[in-house]
Nucleic acid binder design. Structure first.
Length: 892
RNA sequence: AGGGAGUUAGCUCAGUUGGUAGAGCGCCACCCUUACAAGGUGGACGUCGCAGGUUCGAAUCCUGUACUCCCUACCA
């Protein structure tokens, strides 16, 4: 107890040491079998070679808060960490690094390249975990999983094979989004649409017989090389007669037919659309319905291929330029007008996405989507905030099959082998050496890997040992919460629900807590490319983990995005310091505290408990209740704010000040009782605080005279488990202290407004209206004198009021005139100003209340309580304004 | 184009069944009062985007409207 604490809270001294200790003690560990109720969260696996960013910090804060809160509430908590191989992201980073040494991955070869990525993973794979430790994440590290671990890979193969057997996975030549630089297909979700200023080119297509020409508007003229039809609306009078005739594609003189489809909008452009089935999604659909030829113009690198004739080898942009020039020279280009449209870009490489016809693997979505919709509609899975339900369902209602193959080397390789002899496809959970049909050993495994989100979709059960029937799975599946930002509801949440239902016959989680995204000061998304991202570790180093976490907790209102505000973190850093100093001071008052023996009730002697003690216990009861209600309703910011206010505005601002005279006084019994209350309130404060500010709460807790082994595993206070202590509070005491606080505030107000220096002690008279109030104030003489900085205090009748400042305080039936003689202290102008200001305000209130209360309809319709409260307010205001008017007259 | 969200004090944001607008930061004044200047005390500041409507009473409910943002989809 004699240990000296520094006068500033220094997070760096505390955090690393405390975290290591928790870990060593095994406090984060979950039990596969336990009598405690289970509570589990699976961490959304970050990119294994990535950095922690603000989004993670927020996301993890929510999860750790829940986990710590539930742990302290007696749950068998499991927070299961893991990392993701992040196919495209990781491969492109390593590829870029490789390029520095002038080697491409193709030159290196698949095997060597993948080895290189593993090296990379081993080098950086722990970085994210050590950053998570700095955040204070209390996850069960023994259970950490990587998506390419053997166990997770087993699950992936099992699911693939099973879905394939059920006919839900198929291979097909389809139009997919293609990223040229990455040379791979990407999913719809990996395409970002950006508004781009382009041009609409009007190109003339002559009829075969040369009689006339049709004008077609397009934003991508180079794709005309792959046109296999022109299309008009069947009811368009301008073109009706031409349907079925042929036109000639300019420049390459290939004949194509004019077809009709209601897809065409007669009113847009010329009403004629060129159809390039191999390079446009809408055209593709028309190509399929009308049985058109599909001409692919591109190579995998998104360069023009041999089908582009003279334009072969050119990049798309160059080909466009050349085609336009040639069209102009041949008088085929009718006009060019500016056109704003949106263009898909690859979210990884930033390149324009090209629709590209290729052989890919797909998962059928209809069968998976239906149950996934149902569980949300029925409320088995709840979104918080609820508004995401609609977004989720809307997406599932419009879902397309999921392209799961990627032309990458880093990831789960597709478990399909092609026989070189009989061409049979063997789909297998284990690697095979012979064709299952003909036994040939001339086998070639599919070159592609699976979309990263395929393995992520299995995460809630693949991390728990599945396909084995593990105890973990039995205990912790379904998990309790899934915490995430709204950016990956489709990518991830929806797919986990589908796979969970398909393979576990149960939802993967009960509640999806969707938090907002953190944006920069201008409201933009934080990203590396914009250079506006902020490193949470920098913030931790500057302000401490608890300050960062508390700023998130206090900001978690309704799932809305919010702008990053460093000053807010600074504010909570100050709060942590305030807590530190309050605890430091309180502990210094406990140096002679008689620590009760373990197992005893450790309650203060009721006979000696002061009114201040009773009051703070009542306040503690209130905050305990508020926090419990807020946490249960997932209103984390309400809980954090309630604690903030209790600690700063009640405990620090008033309680500590009230107890100072007792601590320095000579009443030993009273002092002992207050010491006990201080020790117990501190203990509860730290426990309440723990999920929000784990480090400082544990650090202070460990220095308390009354405590358990560790704050992290102590009980979370609530009204039921803390009944004995809380019953020492008193509403009566609370009312009494309210009067005392108001009187002190009134004194301070007069001092402040009249600029009476704190160094000057003043004389104060308190005019009271009844004996009860007189007694009450007399009992609290010391507090009033100390906190009001009073030389002489009289309590009684108003007495001589000449040249006095007056502040009427009215609470309930208590009415107190705070009277301060000003003669010789200050001139009266300031006080006249102050009183005049107050009178004006009161006048406004009175006329408003009078009008309201004389309105018959208000009396008739409003709640009785409301009317009564207004009546009280009116009469109180009248009492106050009368005293002030008298005072004003005397001063003038 | 469809869907969703937002608009409250200089800034970042609260405001849960409609009942005289709140916090933190910033600002002004006075204070190093023996826990804390990362502090204390006092103070100033908002016709709650705009226009209607319902109501005794609207930031809150309804209608319309402006602006901002996000998502989904895309007209070549």
């Amino acid at each position: 107890m004699s240990e000296k604490l520094s006068d500033r809270y220094n997070p760096a001294d505390v955090e690393g040491r405390t975290y290591a200790w928790w870990e060593k003690e095994g406090y984060f560990k979950a039990q596969d079998q336990s009598t405690k109720p289970p509570f589990s969260i699976i961490l959304p696996p970050p990119n294994v070679t990535g950095f922690l960013h603000m989004g993670h910090a927020l996301d993890h804060t929510v999860q750790d808060m829940l986990i710590r809160w539930k742990r302290m509430n007696g749950f068998n908590t499991m927070w299961l960490p893991g990392t993701d191989h992040a196919g495209i992201a990781t491969q492109s980073v390593v590829e870029k690094d490789l390029k520095k040494s002038g080697v491409t991955r193709h030159e290196l070869g698949r095997e060597k390249f993948v080895e290189k990525i593993w090296d990379w993973k081993h080098q950086y794979g722990d970085r994210i975990y050590s950053q998570m430790r700095r955040l204070g994440d209390s996850c069960d590290w023994d259970r950490a999983v990587f998506t390419l671990d053997e166990s997770a890979s087993k699950a992936v193969r099992k699911v693939f094979v099973s879905l394939h057997q059920k006919g839900m996975i198929y291979r097909g030549k389809r139009l997919v989004n293609w990223s040229g630089p990455l040379e791979t297909a990407i999913s719809d979700l990996e395409v970002e649409h950006q508004t781009v200023k382009g041009s609409l080119y009007h190109i003339s297509y002559p009829l075969e017989d040369g009689s006339e020409s049709l004008v077609v508007a397009t934003t991508r003229p180079e794709t005309m090389l792959g046109d296999t039809a022109l299309c008009v609306h069947p009811e368009d009078p301008r073109y009706k007669a031409l349907i079925g005739k042929n036109v000639v594609i300019p420049l390459i003189n290939r004949k194509i037919k004019i077809i009709a489809d209601t897809y065409v909008d007669k009113d847009f452009g010329s009403g004629v659309v060129k159809i390039t089935p191999a390079h446009d999604f809408n055209d593709y659909k028309i190509g399929v319905t009308h049985n058109l030829e599909f001409i692919n113009l591109l190579t995998k690198k998104a360069e023009m291929n041999e089908n582009a004739g003279p334009y072969k080898g050119l990049k798309v942009q160059e080909a466009r330029k050349r085609v336009l020039e040639d069209l102009k020279n041949g008088n085929f280009l009718i006009k060019e007008e500016p056109h704003i449209h949106s263009v898909g870009h690859c979210s990884r490489s930033g390149a324009v996405v090209e629709p590209f016809l290729s052989e890919q693997w797909f998962v059928k979505m209809d069968q998976l989507a239906t149950p996934a919709k149902r569980v949300v509609e029925s409320g088995t899975i709840r979104f918080e905030p609820e508004s995401w339900t609609k977004v989720y369902l809307h997406w599932l209602n419009n879902i397309e099959d999921w392209c799961i193959s990627r032309q990458l080397w880093w990831g789960h390789r597709i478990p399909v082998w092609y026989c070189g002899d009989c061409e049979h496809q063997t789909v297998s959970e284990t690697d095979i050496t012979a064709c299952e049909k003909c036994g040939s050993t001339k086998l070639r495994q599919d070159e592609d890997v699976l979309d990263t989100w395929f393995s992520s979709a299995l995460w809630p059960f693949s991390t728990m040992g599945w396909p084995n029937e593990s105890e973990t799975l039995k205990t912790f599946y379904p998990t309790s919460y899934l915490v995430t930002g709204h950016d990956i509801i489709f990518f991830w949440v929806a797919r986990m629900i589908m796979m969970g239902l398909e393979f576990q016959r149960d939802v993967p989680f009960r509640t999806v807590y969707v938090h907002g995204l953190i944006r920069d000061s201008q409201g933009r998304k934080m990203s590396k490319s914009l250079g506006n991202s902020i490193d949470p570790v920098d913030m931790i180093e500057k302000y401490g983990t608890d300050a960062l976490r508390f700023s998130f907790a206090a900001h978690l209102f309704s799932g809305k995005d919010f702008k990053f505000n460093e000053q807010r973190i600074e504010g909570y850093r100050n709060f942590m310091n305030k807590i530190w100093n309050a605890a430091r001071f309180a502990l210094s008052n406990l140096s002679d505290f008689n620590t009760p023996a373990e197992g005893t009730a450790a309650l203060p002697n009721k006979a000696h408990v002061s009114v201040f003690d009773q009051w703070i216990i009542t306040k503690l009861e209130q905050v305990t209740k508020e926090v419990e209600t807020a946490m249960e309703a997932e209103r984390f910011s309400d809980a954090a704010t309630a604690l903030y206010q209790f600690i700063w505005n009640q405990f620090c601002d008033w309680y500590i000040e009230f107890t100072k005279p007792i601590m320095n006084g000579s009443n030993h019994e009273e002092k002992a009782a207050t010491q006990m209350v201080i020790a117990q309130v501190l203990n509860r404060m730290m426990r309440l605080l723990h999920p929000f500010a784990p480090f400082i709460s544990e650090e202070i807790y460990q220095k308390l005279p009354i405590r358990g082994a560790a704050c992290i595993v102590d009980q979370y206070p609530n009204l039921r488990n803390d009944k004995d202590f809380l019953s020492l509070g008193s509403e009566q005491a609370a009312l009494e202290i309210d009067v005392v606080k108001e009187v002190i505030t009134a004194i301070r107000n007069i001092r402040g407004e009249n600029r009476i220096s704190p160094a000057v002690k003043i004389n104060v008279r308190l005019g009271v209206n009844n004996d009860h109030v007189q007694k009450l104030l007399g009992n609290n003489r010391t507090a009033l004198m100390t906190m009001g900085r009073i030389e002489n205090l009289e309590v009684g009748a108003d007495g001589d009021l000449m040249k006095c400042a007056v502040a009427p305080v009215v609470i309930g039936d208590a009415s107190v005139n705070v009277i301060i003689p000003l003669e010789g202290l200050v001139d009266f102008d300031e006080e006249i100003k102050r009183i005049t200001k107050t009178i004006e305000k009161l006048q406004k209130d009175i006329s408003m209340l009078t009008a309201k209360l004389s309105n018959e309809k208000f009396i008739a319709n409003a709640d009785e309580d409301v009317v009564a409260a207004d009546r009280v307010l009116l009469s109180q205001s009248k009492v106050q304004i009368d005293s002030l008017r008298d005072a004003l007259v005397r001063l003038q």
